[in-house]
């Protein structure tokens, strides 16, 4: 069965821009003009386009929908400052780390199927995915550990700033790898057809 090349390209584009919305924030006053929930919605669109190629991606859609709702509530200017529910914060941290890890595991598998023979996009994605998961975990641990290690608060503040920058850089690297994969799909010879992987 041939898979629509345009669908894959569109899906990958949505995914890459979705990551931009999730990891870069530009605020006007207290309102984010690159809200996270838009990133979630773009990733949902990406999954819709790509789930024909990777069945596991469809499993992520319910999680992503919940995350979009949560981020949407947090973004609303009326509620934003008042929505501080540790129970849901921790729940969505755990869901998000699983989501990002699994999403890029699937993207790497997709890259392995679609990339040119000499490319290593799949391995790059897997490396950055692992780094992303570790940074995400470390950053949130520091956030909770910070008040306990008050004596080292200033040092930890610098560590967190450094970690945040690194984390965003890794997210950008993942975004770039998605664009690279999209370009690889676009540049593939027209006569080359994209085959679905065999059913497990």
């Amino acid at each position: 069965m041939n898979t629509d090349r345009a669908s894959i390209r569109t899906g990958l584009t949505y995914a890459a821009w979705g990551y931009l919305f999730l990891h870069v924030n530009v605020n006007i006053g207290s309102i984010s003009i690159l809200p996270d929930f838009v990133g979630d919605l773009m990733l949902i669109c990406a999954i819709n386009y790509l789930s024909a190629m990777r069945r596991d991606l469809a499993l992520l859609k319910p999680l992503l929908t919940l995350m979009a709702v949560w981020h949407g509530i947090q973004w609303l200017p009326v509620l934003g400052d008042h929505v501080n529910i540790p129970f849901l914060d921790i729940l969505f941290y755990a869901v998000a780390i699983y989501f990002h890890f699994q999403f890029f595991t699937d993207m790497a598998a997709l890259a392995a199927d679609l990339q040119p023979p000499e490319a290593h996009l799949d391995r790059t994605m897997l490396h950055f995915r692992t780094l992303y998961a570790l940074l995400y975990t470390a950053w949130h641990l520091l956030q909770y550990g910070n008040p306990i290690l008050m004596r080292y608060r200033e040092v930890l503040a610098w560590v967190m700033i450094g970690g945040t920058i690194l984390w965003v850089l890794v997210a950008i690297a993942l975004m770039v790898s998605l664009f690279s994969l999209r370009n690889a799909v676009c540049d593939a010879p027209a006569e080359q057809t994209l085959e679905l992987p065999p059913k497990e």
């Binding site: 921790i90 755990a94 699983y98 890890f101 595991t105 998961a133 949130h140 909770y144 550990g145």
Partner: peptide, 25 residues
């Protein structure tokens, strides 16, 4: 059907739960 190679993220999820649930706010 469980996705393979999820050892790392399993640990990360568990740690992300453990620390705030022990240290609290």
């Amino acid at each position: 059907l469980y996705p393979q190679g999820m050892g790392l993220v399993s640990w990360c999820v568990a740690i992300i739960l453990l620390v705030p649930l022990l240290t609290g706010l």
